[in-house]
């Protein structure tokens, strides 16, 4: 129990900071990815070149990105948030793009035939039909981001990674667990929440199709 007396308050702090990093960077990444995905789906010819280039970019490990941003921006939360947001973009972008491209042409033709403008077709037909795919991307992004947020501690910016780094450095079993378990739980809880969100916003008519 004394262990929790020592660390209890710091743990709550760390969880809050960690969650803040995750939510803000996933939110920013999601918005950017959604917009980019929509734009790319309008220009599939270029998207075929741009998507592979972006996936090359994706092979840069998060640690490098945080490290380099740290050198330029210094020890501020923005460093972590920008780096994580960049990583959160890709899964959502990829799923938004494929989700939109997979919308059957007959729906688009029917929409046109009904006299929907391109914007209306996008908002009322294409995006709703792509939501299952987009949300799957959001879920992946969130789980990754919880994991990558550990790196904030590498540049002294707190979060659950702090316990993990100290634990590894001092060979302290309990400290590593203190960081790892809440992080894993956070990933699981957030992905359950997103599953709930999916139930809420995936159009009802699509569910029985699966």
């Amino acid at each position: 129990m004394s262990f929790f007396n020592t660390y209890g308050e710091r743990l709550i702090d760390a969880i809050q900071i960690h969650l803040f990093y995750v939510l803000s960077s996933v939110f920013i990444g999601f918005v950017i990815a959604l917009i980019l995905g929509i734009i790319l789906s309008r220009i599939p010819r270029y998207a075929n070149i741009i998507m592979p280039l972006l996936s090359i970019f994706q092979t840069i490990p998060g640690i490098v990105f945080i490290g380099v941003l740290f050198l330029y921006l210094g020890m501020i939360p923005a460093t972590v948030i920008i780096a994580l947001a960049v990583y959160a973009i890709f899964p959502v972008l990829k799923n938004t793009y494929t989700g939109l491209m997979d919308v059957k042409p007959e729906y688009i033709e029917a929409a046109k035939g009904c006299g929907m403008s391109p914007i209306q077709t996008l908002l009322e037909v294409e995006l709703p039909l792509a939501t299952p795919s987009i949300i799957t991307g959001l879920r992946m992004s969130t789980i990754y981001t919880v994991s990558w947020s550990v790196l904030a501690a590498m540049i002294g910016l707190g979060g659950l990674g702090e316990f993990i780094y100290i634990g590894i450095a001092s060979n302290n079993n309990a400290l590593i667990l203190l960081g790892a378990i809440p992080a894993a739980l956070m990933a699981i809880v957030l992905s359950l929440l997103i599953d709930g969100l999916r139930r809420l916003i995936v159009p009802k008519g699509l569910r029985s199709l699966k």
């Binding site: 029917a110 929409a111 035939g113 006299g115 009322e124 709703p128 039909l129 008519g205």
Partner: peptide, 18 residues
Amino acid sequence: LRRKIGYVIQQIGLFPNM
């Protein structure tokens, strides 16, 4: 133009989300 012309296709194309 299309709003003044009804259009029915073989694949039906009812929007599944509506």
